[in-house]
Amino acid sequence: MTVRVRFLAHLKTLFGVKEKDVELVEPALLEDLLKLLCDTPERRREIFLTDGSLNPQVIIMKGGTNALSLQGLETPLGDGDAVAILPFLIGG
């Protein structure tokens, strides 16, 4: 199956692309996708904390819904799903 991933802001530079289609073997979870994407130490540090949980400084959206409101890293992915990865901006 194929999942479309979009990167926003500085994450485009870190992942070297604005968006990409990623092939995954079913059944796949969000964690499988993120581990596949995070193929360098810099990328892993941006997305995961050292205990393997999601870094709260990034937001992962699946189809317009924050993954934390779904099943977090255990969120199942399906063919054609859209995932967006963006930094959590807080200032004002």
């Binding site: 802001a9 709260p56 924050n66 004002g92």
Partner: peptide
């Protein structure tokens, strides 16, 4: 609206029609 470094975001919430801030953003310490 929110900003960081050279990035920023805008989201208009229309109650009853669109997602609200709590729908989208998780808790994050100040």
């Amino acid at each position: 609206g929110a900003v960081l470094e050279l990035s920023g975001q805008v989201m208009t919430v229309i109650p009853g029609k669109t997602a609200c801030l709590k729908c989208v953003f998780p808790p994050l310490p100040a």
